[in-house]
Amino acid sequence: MATTEKMSKTTTPTHWDADIPVNYVYTYGLAGEAFFRAIKDRGTFLGTRCDACDITYVPPKAYCDRCLEALDKYIDVGTVGYVDTFTVSFKNMDGSEKPRPRILAMIKIEGTDGGIIHYLDGISIEEVALGLPVQAIFKPKAQRKGGIEDIIGFGPVKR
């Protein structure tokens, strides 16, 4: 008798249910702390730049991942960028239908090599396009806690 056959004829299939009961608290790190403090306190984005590699990181990094040099000078890169790519999300995490579709985009920040993934806000599916200029919309300062949720989304650029 083959092994598989022996194995399949001994018992009815049963299973065991359990969960892994852990939770996490993450620090933002040296560069992440600076980035989220600037969002919380000043409503702007910071980056770091490696001149040798000619690259500007947003969100900032404490080091250049091309050459491993330390990057500790933070520059204010503003809050304006453009849609580098996007997707439209119709479903929630559990597979249920969203009340209205949401556009999730990679926003490249103007003048940098970096980008932020976030929702578009106040831009319709008909309007959205690659290259569309957008600007970050923050929660009111008093409600900001220092996290990615301090950004409501990216909307049309205010002039």
Binding site: Y26, T27, Y28, G29, L30, A31, G32, E33, A62, Y63, L68, E69, A70
Partner: peptide
């Protein structure tokens, strides 16, 4: 016990020093 650095940043500090 608790580092402010992210795991990436700790890795970088050690790697850079080694090089």
């Amino acid at each position: 016990r608790r580092a402010q650095e992210t795991g990436k940043e700790l890795s970088w500090q050690a790697s850079k020093m080694a090089l």
